[in-house]
Write a protein that binds this DNA or RNA. Structure first.
Lengths: 188, 188
DNA sequence: GCAAATTAATGATTTATTCAAG
DNA sequence: CTTGAATAAATCATTAATTTGC
């Protein structure tokens, strides 16, 4: 795809300012949430492409949009978690001092059947709560906002995880990863 | 293009770990430095592509590599600047107190003929030193590391800035920018 | 009811940090 | 130790909710 994906062009607003952004359909959000909640919180490039194709069923979307979505989802999930943790420990700190600090601050942090791919090498790193976000999955809102119906039980990730058509593991000219990769593309 | 750029595959190391990285040729570095120093410190997607094509003349390289290069160049340039600034103000602070704080800490911060594109909207924001990085260009090391010769005066950016073949201003299906854009691509 | 004005969500971009190849 | 690659955090900007005055 690279740039001009497929469907609607036209939407290319004036060259200066304006700009419109992707607005995911409810069905698309269901899928994305499903995937995220099942543990795949940072899909690799090929996974992202697969997800994008899946989403296209319900409306135009690009790889970058999917990437952005997961990036933001992860980030905001983490932030919410931190806030909860902060307010929790603040509340408990009013009386006891040396106690709180449970493993992840009360969050369940389960991890469904999908192995979170890259485990981030688990080497030395900053963040106190390592393990941090990789498998953290949902953060309370497993509920879906609207009247949508898509068989929630058909574990969408099973579709993605199935190592079907693995033809062509692209790998560009030089380095990069494509493994733990999933990162910068920047340009739409 | 999307993912698999163009030339040599093969280099796709094992699917797990390893990875090799792009190693820019001296000529490529000259070009990149030239562009950066002439003021284009954050090329847009289309500019990035143009640059990449230019570099390919001297060896395999992908858009992502170019993107990374500029990202790192900006980042490290800024860091060095901060360090210089820090040590400078620290040095001057030994005697006088309420004085240092010159505009940019002694750095010249000129700006060549290229208008730095996006001025970041200058809306309300945090960061103290706004204006920050956009047009900052060189940070003292205008020198090039090796014995290379490419007419420094033929302002490479003029080639890039020239609005030649502007056919096909891509604009993907949904949103994104491509204007102020230049950002995430992530996947190699 | 309805738009203009505000606010809340969230998609997109940039910056700071970290990891690791060479 | 330098620097390419990758990720997380912070920020910007646009769109949807909502509030408000009519």
């Amino acid at each position: 795809m690279d740039d001009d994906s497929s469907s609607s062009n036209q939407s290319c607003e004036r060259n200066e300012t304006v700009r419109s952004r992707w607005n995911p359909k409810p069905e698309q959000i269901v899928i994305l949430e499903s995937i995220f909640n099942s543990g795949m919180v940072n899909p690799r490039k090929d996974e992202t492409v697969r997800i994008r194709k899946m989403l296209e069923q319900f409306g135009a979307v690009g790889d970058a949009n999917v990437f952005y979505w997961f990036q933001n989802r992860r980030s905001r999930s983490r932030r919410r978690q931190r806030q909860i943790q902060a307010s929790l420990s603040a509340a408990s700190n009013s009386n006891e001092e040396q106690f709180a600090r449970s493993s992840t601050g009360g969050a369940i942090q389960f991890q469904t059947n999908f192995v979170p791919s890259s485990v981030s090498s688990s080497s030395s790193s900053s963040s106190s709560s390592l393990g941090g976000v990789v498998g953290n999955a949902n953060d309370g809102l497993f509920l879906f906002s609207g009247p949508m119906e898509i068989d929630q039980n058909t574990s969408i990730t099973s579709i993605l995880c199935s190592p079907t058509d693995n033809s062509k593991l692209n790998c560009s000219s030089s380095g990069s990863k494509d493994h733990l990769c999933n990162t910068v593309l920047k340009y739409k």
